[in-house]
Write a protein that binds this DNA or RNA. Sequence first.
DNA 1: TGTACATCAGTGAACGCGCGTTCACTGATGTAC
DNA 2: TGTACATCAGTGAACGCGCGTTCACTGATGTAC
Lengths: 232, 232
Amino acid sequence: MASMPEPAALTARAVARRELTSAIVAVARRQMAEIGPAQLSVRAVARELNMASSAVYRYFPSRDELLTELLVIIYDELADATEQADARRRRGDFSGRWLTLARTTRSWAVSHPQDYALLYGSPVPGYAAPERTIPPAARVTAVLIRLLRDVHRAGAVPAARERVPRSAHRTLASFRQAVGEDLPDDLALRGLTAWGGLIGALTLELFGHLQNVITDHDTYFDLVARRLSPVL
Amino acid sequence: MASMPEPAALTARAVARRELTSAIVAVARRQMAEIGPAQLSVRAVARELNMASSAVYRYFPSRDELLTELLVIIYDELADATEQADARRRRGDFSGRWLTLARTTRSWAVSHPQDYALLYGSPVPGYAAPERTIPPAARVTAVLIRLLRDVHRAGAVPAARERVPRSAHRTLASFRQAVGEDLPDDLALRGLTAWGGLIGALTLELFGHLQNVITDHDTYFDLVARRLSPVL
DNA sequence: TGTACATCAGTGAACGCGCGTTCACTGATGTAC
DNA sequence: TGTACATCAGTGAACGCGCGTTCACTGATGTAC
């Protein structure tokens, strides 16, 4: 028998590398959840892992790469949560799917406020997210986009509440192309407005702007989410 | 004639102090607009003013106090802008007043993105805004609140689009109290949702989330702002 | 199966930077008599 | 109006901290023969 290299034969080194890489990410993530994205520090991560700060550079070439890794992981995590929640709903239950999306996003955000700040708060000073963060970021919005698409295909687009000016068609061109479906302007706008309203509601809540205004945030969010529904 | 102290008789010291205090604030503000709130540095401000960094402490007891001062000034500036714009509209033109509020907020935000980030972006790490920032912050929302009040008093509340659950009444209690008027739940919710939608739209735009989705941001914002109107 | 060499992980010291804040001191300004 | 003292602004050095990143080196692991 010809000597085949074991397909999953990982050297001890490779195993160790995989393990330490994910340990670094895990620690970075935990620390970031406490101190916020801008304060993420290579040295602090190394300290917690009892290794020299220089050793981290065998795994990530710079702090920014580490941040990028976190960004990707966190986008993916949020996308996983919303995708799975969406999958549990009947496809034709458009209202329910929107509410599920909104609520899932919120409960994720509320339990990971600094992660939310990384994704939707102020940009981290001196850091520019590279290309490879785009696909995971797009996964998050894709859940809403699929919902809009399904509504459209089902012919369940609600009647427009107001006339959409003709200029809207051009303005929404890139969006329609990103969606890959010829959504009516009104539906596209409903979707985008809902998305903005969701982010706005979470931003106000998580960054403390509803402090003396709202006490029962759960109930309040539900009320707002219903109103924002793009399918009603 | 009894010797009266000149009422506006400022000593040279007092004049210099006033001048330097505002010079420090002005420089801090300009630097913050470039590098962002979290990067604001006492030493950098002192450097630009050609003074020892320790000298700044004769004027502000800490970096945080300087930040607070900026926060107050910037809230006030935004409030001034929206108040003045609102004042130029006919009181009964509720739709116009909303659109003016939204557009004025946006044009201010677009031309002062870091200021916007200070007010509505992620909290500055390690900094907690003290009480005295509350009144100026409230001035900003007061413009919308007065609009809602005027709508209510004019009996021009639009018909509710959907039934508001009874639970809403309690949830909105603090808000109603802050407003100081017995707004109907539906109108209160319209206002809060609009406010969130506005902040969300600006957050998405300014923090780069519409990068490959929208090209003509001006037109897009107008479309969204109309939809968000609490008075339609 | 054993050996010789190449690769890699991890170390500790160092570079160069920036920060907020304190402190003792100097010299100018203000005030009370 | 002049003098004596008190107040205040500003300085420069220092404390103590933390950061990202580089570099020469050691010792372990992997690989080719």
